[in-house]
Design a protein around this nucleic acid. Sequence first.
RNA 1: GCGGGCGUAGCCAAGUGGUUAAGGCAGUGGAUUGUGGUUCCACCAUUCGGGGGUUCAAGUCCCCUCGUUCGCCCCA
Length: 428
Amino acid sequence: MGVIQALPGTRDILPEKVSYWQWIESVARQILHRANYQEIRTPIFEATELFKRGIGEATDVVGKEMYTFNDKATPPRSVTLRPEGTAGVVRAFIERNLDAQSGVQRLWYTGPMFRYESPQAGRQRQFHQIGVEVLGSADPRADAEVIAIATDILQSLGLKNLRLDLNSVGNPEDRQNYRQALVDYLTPYKEELDPDSQNRLSRNPLRILDSKNQRTQEIARNAPSILDYLGTYSQQHFDRVQQLLTDLGIEYQINPRLVRGLDYYTHTAFEIQSDDLGAQATVCGGGRYDGLVGQLGGPDTPAVGWAIGIERLIMLLEELQSPPASTLDFYVVSRGEQAEAQALILAYKLRQSGFSVELDFSGSAFKKQFARADRSGAVACLILGEEEAASQSVKLKWMATREQQAIAQSELLQMQDELKRSILNLRA
RNA sequence: GCGGGCGUAGCCAAGUGGUUAAGGCAGUGGAUUGUGGUUCCACCAUUCGGGGGUUCAAGUCCCCUCGUUCGCCCCA
C-alpha cells in the first residue's frame, strides 16, 4: 500500500501494553536492588569479534543469526548488534577493570537484543531481555542465589506452572570425555537420525540430545548421560547447587539432556519453561560460564548468570492479569473560546498540584465530551462553559455518584487536600 | 533457508461465481437550549494486500507477487 511498515520481527510496544513492561521492570528492579545487584548499561552494538570469540563460531547465534554490518570507518570495521547481553557485560568488566573493584561483581541489565531469525510466536528479531551476571565467584551459592532471584521475579509477577530444568555440563574436560562417549553411542544409529542431527554428530553432538525429531529422541533416550561423566569437582559443585536449591524450597528437575546453545557454559545450566508459550517455551535461560572472561582476554574469573525474555514473559502475563486500570483524576470538558482558554489554565495548575488531568480538545457537544470523560476512567469531571467562564467558576462532577457542584476556580485550587482524599476514597 | 495458515474500512468481522460488499466497536452529526457509562436516526470501503488470467459475470476459481502468522532449525 506504500505505507512503511515496521521491519519483520520488530514490534511497536503500544501504550496499552507499556504497563506490562513497567510492571516487570519495577518488580525486577526491586528484587535486584534488595540483593544489591548494580545495573550496568553497555552499548547495543559491539565489535563483531567479541561475539565470535565469546559465544563461539560454531553456534547458530554466531553462524547465522547475527546482525552484522560494516560501519564507515576506514578501513571498514565489522560491527554487530548484540544478540545477547553477557558478552558485552564481560567486555566491560575486563576493559573497565571491574575485577579490581571488589571480590564479586553482581550486575544486571535490560535492553534490546537482535537476532536475524525468522519470526514466530515468542521469537522476534529485536527482543528484550533482563539479565544478571555474577562475576568473580565459583561458589555454588552464587548459582543458587541467581536462580533464586529469577524464580523470585517470576513468582512476584504471579506466574505459576513454571518448570525449572537443571543440568551440569561439567568443565571442558568432562565435556570432552562425554562428547566422545556420546559419539560412540550415536554413530551406529547415524542413518536413523534426522538430517540435522546427522550433521551435528561431528560438529556439535551434544545438541542432538534436545532434538525434537521423534526418532532422534527415542535414540537419545538411551544415550549415556553427561552426569556420569562429571569429574569430582564438577560433581561436588552440582550436588551442592541442588542441595542449596532444595534448602531454599525451590523445586527443580534434573534434565541431563538440557544443553544450551552458547559455547561458554560450564557446570550449571538451567532453563525455566512454561507450557503456555507454544514452541518457544523458555522464559529464562542461564548458567555458569567460568571460562568466558579468560577466553575474552581477562583474568580467569568464574561467573554465572541468566537472561529472561521479556516478550515471552508478557505473553504469559497476558493470560493471567489485565494491565492496571487508568489512574486519571480529572477530565476537563469545555466549550466556548473563553471557557476553553480557562480550562487549559485550570488543567495546567491542577497538574502542578500533582493531579492527573486530561483536557478534551474536541470542542464538540458536551454530550460527546461527557461520553469521552466516562470512557477515560476519570474520577471526576470539570466543566467549563460560557456561564462558568463569565463567573470564573467551574462545575465539579464526581462521575461515580453524578453529584455536581459549582465552585470558584480559585477555590478549587485551594482545596487540594480535600480533593485528593475524595479521589482516593472514590477509587477504592 | 524450508513447510502450513491467513490477508475484506482505524479495529473485529460476515461473505465460498450473479444486481447497490452484512454486522459490531471506534469516529462524526443529530433526536428542542450545556451532562456520560441507556436508546434511536443519519454519515463512515466505487471496493475486498498488489498484479495478471479464466468467465457473459470474481472478494469468491487459477497463477505470480508482497505482507503477515504458525511451525522446522535454534533460542530469551
